[in-house]
Design a protein around this nucleic acid. Sequence first.
DNA 1: TTAATTTACGCAATCGTTGCCAAAAACAAT
DNA 2: ATTGTTTTTGGCAACGATTGCGTAAATTAA
Lengths: 336, 336
Amino acid sequence: MFESSTIKDIARALGLSTSTVSRALRDSYEISAGTKKLVMEYAKQVNYRPNPNALSLKERRSKSIGIVVSEVANHYFSQAINGIESIANSRGYTVIITQTHESFEREKTNVQHLASRSVDGLLISLSAETNDVSHLEQLHQRGLPIVFFDRVPERINTYKIIADNAMGAFEATLHLIRSGHKKIAHISSSAHLSISIERLSGYTDALNKNGISIQPEYIKNCSHGGMIQDEVETAVKELLNLKDKPDAIFVAGDRLTMGCMHVLKKLNMLNPTLIAIAGFSNSDVLDLFNPPITSVFQPAFDMGQLATEKLLELIEAKFPVTEFEQTILNTKLFIR
Amino acid sequence: MFESSTIKDIARALGLSTSTVSRALRDSYEISAGTKKLVMEYAKQVNYRPNPNALSLKERRSKSIGIVVSEVANHYFSQAINGIESIANSRGYTVIITQTHESFEREKTNVQHLASRSVDGLLISLSAETNDVSHLEQLHQRGLPIVFFDRVPERINTYKIIADNAMGAFEATLHLIRSGHKKIAHISSSAHLSISIERLSGYTDALNKNGISIQPEYIKNCSHGGMIQDEVETAVKELLNLKDKPDAIFVAGDRLTMGCMHVLKKLNMLNPTLIAIAGFSNSDVLDLFNPPITSVFQPAFDMGQLATEKLLELIEAKFPVTEFEQTILNTKLFIR
DNA sequence: TTAATTTACGCAATCGTTGCCAAAAACAAT
DNA sequence: ATTGTTTTTGGCAACGATTGCGTAAATTAA
């Protein structure tokens, strides 16, 4: 089996005690230069690596953080993960990524699993189905550091990193209006998610400020966040079957945008002269369409980095932190 | 700080010894029914969770497996990861995902890190830059279970799960030929990767069997697997600057296909009447193009599942396994 | 030469859990 | 009542690494 050498092995081989070896490896002042050199060279020779489990047990921390996202196959999240990784790894932390696939049950299971794996902290973007955050509240109250990003709950008081969803939605909708559209529909994820609420408000703001009245039947929510293609298909078809059919759709998410395009393609309507689309997306494939599709880009990488910095701040804090802030990063509209 | 209750806490609270509590929780036959009930109820009440670090230290295994892939933002890998997760989680294993971003250095660092994190086994698809696998060989010889998938090394004797790359490439190239193309170029990842070699052979086979001679200048390799867009751009431009310009390109990878399309779009040549494209890709966005793009789909999810099953077989084997096989799964051509 | 100080190292406890052996309690057989 | 058996429980050690404390040996000072 796969065994690596331990401090004990080194001590035995060199005729020293484990404490001497340990201290020599940590370059302690109370070990003579000769012994240090001896130990260090032998350790390098046998490729000694400290056992992380032993360390975690002793230090009562695992030097690992848990991530909970909907899916890695989502440009926003994969970019955020790259940001998270870049900070976490450089600070010596391992990252454990879990996916909810937008399911509340899987979110609870994943969180429970990460907690029992004794991660030092949690970075989480809520699943589309999540309306109740008591599973997280409980852990948070017991002292587990948590930072939310992207989809954040109101009830839990901790650091939150979000994009300026309202502004992004406002700009995207405004772009559709300026392109001559007046009948603009809106497809979004679950109504209760923070991002949905904020994006909806940006959308209605843009319409209001331009003297366009809000049509409730133009607003569709997909409570599984587009994980179920049928849901998206139904939403799009309902919009297209309206007496007063919309001439544009503002779609509020990466996966939803793709899902929506698939439906339109299937209906042979993927054509901006028939119906224009603008949406939140961090994917650069949108460039490739002809005509291309305008989209709101979120600074996912930066959000991941910032969230991780905040989390490590909490984890490594000497005293319990009680003052938290919510950071809002700017989105960028790619007009295509 | 975040503390959960331990066996010791329970023992103290109930006036029992830790060993009794431990055995009561494991429902050992040698503990009386009354004590068991007492302990179990109290444990549930205080939400007792065994400390995984203590267990890992004792059992000398971590119940976790490491994954090394180029990028999660790649449809092939994200699907494979879903397959890996599905098996690993159901068998009680945690998965640690790391990305190489096609860099050899990062691959070495990640592997080293996973090994020192004492994962029970490794699932790996080599980076585009990786030509030397001694870092893996060493670990493998020391007994760490490793299963390769997708991009596999020849030198290391263990389970390998791959797609039928030659056949996939053959079919895609054949499709281009049947669509009337004769001047078919090929853009691939690093020349030394197993997938590149196999896909190249499928490509040349298809040409040979149809009486088309191989033009060496039609074959381009991107040694960073498309991570550097310049590299792709150069390759495409060189093809387009040839006296005898190709009228089709067979692209051998997800990221390369997208990269290639971006270049063509930039050159205003993303149009199959100017130059046709067929490629390996697990992305369904290819559906959305007009005209759509034919692609070779790999059973990524199944490959991930199978690789994980093999790895767990190695990890949980009573005796060292010495007989290994390479499994080849069929690809599927989506003619669009 | 002796006392004081410094240097260099070892012992043992700790983290949470389990395996093994001994001890105590409960019960049965004489 | 005494011995033997079985059932139930407790104590100790171990996994790997760290660390406070103690101490022998070496060095310096008096």
